[in-house]
Nucleic acid binder design. Structure first.
Lengths: 191, 191
DNA sequence: CAACAATTGTGTCAAATGACACACTAACAA
DNA sequence: TTGTTAGTGTGTCATTTGACACAATTGTTG
């Protein structure tokens, strides 16, 4: 439970007992590269916490092209939130690009946690609030950056993503074409 | 309290009593065009619910250019979430582009609500979850659309935004230049 | 009304991009 | 080994875009 404990210790103040209580809701698993974590058409009834490894979340647009929605590089959460919280079928799929250490939170355990008492409900509320805040800040940051700068940032901050995702996947993630990303790569070959 | 009641009735199941209890946390105000709702440097200690009207949320990038973060067209919530939830100073500002009917939720009232009991804490958690879900879906939708399509969607779904924001503001919101948006406008003059 | 500022409309041009075509390489199976 | 497949590297070209410059229009203020 190492990575998970570390994450909650860093991001939220919890007593030792509370931390133990929380961690008990998760189940640690190791999955190998290529494992499908969820797939288009199913209801995603778990939240994954990625301890180590890289996940690829994607769907297909009207033209049938694969569109990368997210490249998760632990430590972070990964799920299809709408599917999880409203029990809808997912339009996204998620596959492990590397061997991964994951911590699984089942929907029933999640529901039990948020109904324990007001403290735990507020704790989950705060985790979700932080997730939303983080996403808003990322969007702000992105809006001021060129594709090239975003690629260089990724190279610096998330080298595992660069090493394990194909150039086409990264291009789709950055919202550009494979060829343009290749030009950027060639130009920055020394970096 | 019309627009606010209507919003919560539509989006969440609440008994009459619960709806009344919730609504009591808000204060209805009318503001005129040009009113500053919050400003860079201050701590945003309220959440606004926009009943009617258009708000412009923006900040400045490193080059000192105004960047539009959001154009809020009621009914919707508007705040700086990070500033509100963590009492940090805001880097964003927010101005009314039209006369507006707003419903203000003070931070103290918010804190009181989420600490009432597990039911209300979970209610707020669900509102935030829905907000996050909605944003993720918008991002998905945007990633498949051209600037032109997004402009036409805005014209169709949020005509008040088109009517009240300048072409430069809308261009910034869509992530393009004033000139390019003008080309799109000229091309679709008949629409 | 005149003067001024702010916004919008427009043309030109260099640069960036996407689409297409195809060669090259690596990994893997038969 | 050979063939196959997926992924990557590369060149060409039409199109789109952003930047710049400036005209036209609108709105505001004295």
């Amino acid at each position: 439970m190492d990575a998970l404990q570390h994450f909650f210790k860093e991001s939220h103040n919890l007593s030792k007992d509370d931390l133990g209580y929380l961690i008990n809701h998760f189940e640690k698993v190791s999955v190998s590269k290529g494992t499908v974590l969820f797939k288009q058409g199913m209801v995603v009834d778990v939240v994954y916490f990625v301890g180590e490894g890289v996940l690829h979340q994607y769907n297909y647009n009207e033209e049938g092209e694969k569109v990368t929605l997210n490249l998760h590089d632990g430590p972070c959460f990964c799920t299809n939130l709408e599917s999880f919280s409203e029990r809808k079928t997912s339009q996204d799929s998620c596959v492990a690009l590397t061997d991964c250490t994951l911590y699984i939170l089942q929907k029933e355990k999640y529901d039990a946690l948020v109904n324990t008492n007001v403290k735990w409900s507020n704790f989950v509320k705060d985790v979700i609030t932080k997730t939303l805040t983080k996403m808003l800040n990322q969007l702000k940051a992105i809006s001021n950056k060129s594709i090239e700068q975003r690629y260089l940032d990724l190279l610096k901050n998330n080298p595992l993503i660069i090493q394990n995702a194909s150039i086409a996947t990264i291009a789709s993630y950055l919202g550009t074409s494979r060829e343009t990303l290749h030009r950027i790569r060639r130009k920055n070959i020394l970096v």
